[in-house]
Each structure stands twice: as structure tokens, then as C-alpha cells.
Design a protein around this nucleic acid. Structure first.
Ligand SMILES: [Mn+2]
Ligand SMILES: [Mn+2]
Ligand SMILES: [Zn+2]
Ligand SMILES: [Zn+2]
Lengths: 149, 149
DNA sequence: TTTGTTATTGAAAATAATTTTCAATAGGTT
DNA sequence: AACCTATTGAAAATTATTTTCAATAACAAA
């Protein structure tokens, strides 16, 4: 059994919740998804493999998984919440391409450090942050250059 | 006349739109607001001074002001769009206190530079970004310490 | 295994912010 | 003054998210 199911089970036991096939099935689908998936998208993926599982259950399970630390809620400011993997994925920030909609993951330890310093300078105690850089990815730049030739 | 009204007028003329009292009145109220105001809040402020002006007009006028560059739309991930002044206000990032909800404006030119570098390393062409650090502000920390004594 | 308690499910309804519609009004040009 | 059409604002629509509630199922105890 994959470690992720173990984590879910442990959480369920610890909180005196109940093991259900739906919860494991949603996790099963989510594990195979990569990238940043909306509830709507994920729910459709779940429906393909487990047609009986409703949207609401996917919604509630993802909130549960977020509690366990298996996933992360990410908001790119487009009016839709997205979920990304957190287990075995370290913290990162995002480049958001406004042409193709891709989310590119980046990380810079220096920026992270300077953010902490910046907060400290204000006596602010940080516990999370989000950094999103919006623009045009390299692929879309290439595509655009081709067209305009 | 304040420069802001001039900017609005210029924009209206340039785009062949129409000068209306409503638009100037919404700007008049927004100019006196400081901080980061939601449409709901702003609409109530507008109603106090100009009771005839409806929510929809405030909504549309703020979008117009955003186009002129007089205001900025800011999304702190709480499901409500907020507006802040842009005219005579330079770019900055935000510390968001999850206790009192205050938004503290900060700026660090080094972080800005490193963000550009980070994007460049991916061949990404940035045109805007948002950095928000969530946590507890100094005032709320002090208040909490007092209570727990 | 059976029973009892109560968490979970999922369809439907509710919520809430934002956006659109449309008939009446009013800005600005001729 | 007449005309055209942008603007207004109440109401309706939209859309993602959250809640409700009756039926079901998990799981502990008998
Ligand atoms: Mn990511
Ligand atoms: Mn600000
Ligand atoms: Zn792209
Ligand atoms: Zn605070």
C-alpha cells in the first residue's frame, strides 16, 4: 500500500472518523493526477473510474486530504481553487502563464529567507506565503515569435 | 481639481466615453478611502454620501478606474476582491494578519530583483506578481501575549 | 452475527461574490 | 430641440463553493 493511504488511514483513526471506499477512491485518483487540478476537473476524473462518487464527496475528501497534509489548496486568482500534491513535494512558488495557463513551479531559498527577514522587520510572525509571478512562459513566447514572422 | 479627476476625464475623453456625476462621485469617495476596500464596503461608503448611486455603478466604475490605473484590484484569497489606490502609490507586497485582518504594505527591492532573475532563469517573461505573507501582526502577537499571562 | 449509534454520502438547495440584462434616463453632438 | 447611444440601477443570471437532509453504511458493543 502506498504511503499516502497509510497517512489517510492514520488521520482517520486518530480523529475517530470512518474509513470509506469513497475516500480511498478519491485519493487513488488524486495520486495519479499531476499538476494543479480544480475540483471540477478532479471530480470528472473520479467519475470516470468510480462513477458512483458524487461531486460533494470529492469536495469533502479534498478538504480532508488538505487537513492530513496530502494536498495543498492553491488559488491563482482565477476564481477557482486548485489542489496540488503536498506529500513528497516541498514548498515552491509559481510562474503563471497567462497565454497557456500553465503553472511552473519554482523555488529560490534566498527569496524565502528574505521574505522572512522582511516580515521580521515588521514584527510580523509569518506562517505561510504565496508568491505568484504572472507573465508569458518560454513556450508561448516562442509560439508568438513564430506567428509574427 | 485633484489630479485623479483629471486622469479619469482624460481617459473618458480618449475612449469616447461619457462624463457622468456617478463616476466622479465614486472616485470622490474612493479617493478618501484608505487601505484595501471591498466593493461591498465601498458601495456602502458611496451610499452614505450619494444615496442614489447603485452597487452596479460602483462595480463598473471601479473596473473603469482600474483601467485608468487609478486603482488596483487585490485578491487576498478570502473570496472578495479589494481595491487599493494605485495613483501615487508604488508597487508593494502585503503581510496579511489572520487575526485582525490587517494588510500591511511592504517592499523590498532585492526580493523584486530576485523574482525577475528567477523568472528569467525559466525563460519566463513576467509582467506582474503578487507576494502575500500570511501570519500574525505585531499588535496581535502583543494582544495574545497579554491574554495568556 | 445482530443491533444500535452516528458518520458519511450525494442530490438538491443555499450561499455569496460577481457579472449580465434591459428598460429608463441622460450625456453630448448635430 | 432633436437625435443617438452610453450609462444607470434594479433585478436576474452566473458560478464556485458550501450546507442541508434523508438514506446508507461504518464500526463498536452486545
Ligand atoms: Mn505547485
Ligand atoms: Mn496595498
Ligand atoms: Zn504559456
Ligand atoms: Zn493583526
Amino acid at each position: 500500500m502506498r504511503k499516502e493511504f497509510q497517512i489517510l488511514d492514520d488521520f482517520i483513526r486518530q480523529k475517530a472518523l470512518r474509513r470509506t471506499p469513497q475516500r480511498e477512491n478519491v485519493l487513488d485518483v488524486f495520486i495519479r493526477v499531476e499538476g494543479h487540478v480544480s475540483l471540477d476537473e478532479l471530480s470528472r476524473f473520479v467519475k470516470k473510474k468510480y462513477p458512483k462518487i458524487g461531486y460533494t464527496t470529492v469536495y469533502r475528501t479534498m478538504r480532508l486530504l488538505a487537513e492530513t497534509g496530502l494536498c495543498n489548496e492553491v488559488d491563482f486568482g482565477h476564481g477557482v481553487l486548485r489542489y496540488e500534491h503536498k506529500y513528497n513535494h516541498s514548498h515552491h512558488d509559481h510562474l503563471v502563464c497567462k497565454k497557456c495557463g500553465r503553472y511552473i513551479e519554482v523555488f529560490d531559498p534566498q527569496i524565502e529567507k528574505m521574505q522572512d527577514k522582511l516580515a521580521a522587520k515588521c514584527g510580523f510572525k509569518p506562517d505561510s506565503h504565496r508568491l505568484q509571478i504572472f507573465g508569458v512562459c518560454s513556450k508561448c513566447q516562442a509560439r508568438y515569435n513564430k506567428k509574427s514572422k
